[in-house]
Design a protein around this nucleic acid. Structure first.
Length: 347
DNA sequence: AAGCCGGGGCG
DNA sequence: CGCCCAGGCTT
């Protein structure tokens, strides 16, 4: 048992290289669960969630039988909540249609909800030792450096996959896939790669050329436009806040938020959700989404108990949880609450 | 093909 | 605190 086995012991879903050499393979359920959790998420963030899930639901059948709300609740804090919904869908297909056994091929896995090209290849490789070419951000970076590929991402993806395929062995491909990803996660890191302790430093073209830290190159990011909007935060005299549930589709779909104007690149159109004596406290929330910056101007008002809003619903102070708001809406709340007149709790 | 979806880590 | 990270689904 070497240091790499010790490392594997810190990953509860992992069967270490020595055990794998002796023919052991991990439970496909644990591989699938961990790989879905690891999509866009670090090992450190996933560990406790994985242990909690496998304790509550030791098999895919147990997970399939769980209540939706229980699974979503356990996922809270991990982010990208569509993953949790697809996780449950996938568990129910595997338990209901495949007798609790995951497909053992890349194509079969790819057809399941929440399993895309990366995850299908990862499960086929790690759980079934199939020679799938596993491509994630780590592998792309390792290949770009090892072979000094200068083509910017994402155009370089096919080339990087060809290089990775050439390195994928017929003998224990699952071990190989995990090793390359581990290398990318621990040594061949995006910034400050630890080339001095890299096990493949003598083979690395980028290291030889002194450009490892500059690869992979990436296409310049499109400049984000700034959109402007107005959010209306109104509190009833009993402390209740007026909120609305956003439409299921689109930005922040299905999430709770403050009523507001459209978010436009020009000046926003005033759109108060209720007739009131609106104040402009000069507060502005700045938030950046994937494709635009947002400058959100706040308007505040207090209204009487008999107020009937044109949009949204009042949420009692006793049950309102700012933590249930998406970040941009919580920022607006945090700014506004300091500018609202003190309200007494309902009695 | 492009937009959307969170949270963590680093400089 | 701002910037970077990057897999899958939807339209």
């Amino acid at each position: 048992m070497g240091w790499y086995d010790t490392h594997a012991r810190d990953l509860p879903w992992r069967v270490g290289p020595t055990a794998r050499k002796n023919g052991a393979l991990p439970d496909p359920y644990g591989v699938w669960l961990s790989e879905v959790m690891l999509q866009q998420t670090t090992v450190a963030a996933v560990r406790d969630y994985f242990l909690r899930f496998t304790t509550l639901w030791p098999t895919v059948g147990d997970l399939a039988a769980a209540e939706d709300a229980a699974v979503m609740g356990e996922w809270a804090g991990l982010g990208y909540y569509a993953r949790a919904r697809n996780l449950l869908k996938c568990a129910r297909v595997v338990a209901g249609e495949f007798g609790g056994r995951f497909p053992d091929t890349e194509d079969g896995l790819r057809d399941l909800p929440g399993i895309g090209p990366y995850t299908a290849a990862a499960i086929a490789s790690i759980a079934f030792d199939r020679p799938a070419v596993v491509m994630d951000g780590n592998v792309e970076r390792v290949m770009a450096r090892l072979f000094a590929v200068q083509t910017p991402l994402p155009a370089a993806k096919p080339e990087l996959k060809t290089l990775a395929a050439r390195l994928t062995p017929a003998d224990r491909p699952g071990c190989h896939a995990q090793a390359v990803m581990d290398l990318g996660a621990t040594i061949c890191t995006p910034r400050n790669p630890a080339c001095g302790i890299c096990p493949v430093m003598t083979a690395c073209a980028a290291r030889k050329a002194g450009i490892a830290a500059d690869l992979p190159t990436k296409a310049p990011k499109k400049a984000k436009p700034t959109r402007h909007g107005i959010a209306y935060l109104v509190q009833r005299v009993d402390g209740a806040w007026l909120l609305e549930t956003r439409p299921d589709k689109g930005l922040l779909g299905g999430m709770l938020g403050w009523p507001g104007s459209d978010w436009t690149e020009g000046a926003p159109t005033d759109a108060p959700p209720v007739a009131a004596d609106w104040r402009d406290p000069g507060l502005e929330v700045r938030h950046t989404f994937t494709h635009f910056h947002l400058s959100l101007s706040l308007r505040l008002a207090c209204v009487g108990l008999d107020t009937v809003p044109q949009r949204g619903e009042f949420h009692d102070l006793a049950t309102f949880r700012p933590a249930n708001l998406p970040t941009v809406m919580r920022k607006a709340f945090d700014l506004a609450k300091g500018a609202m007149p003190a309200t007494s709790a309902p009695h």
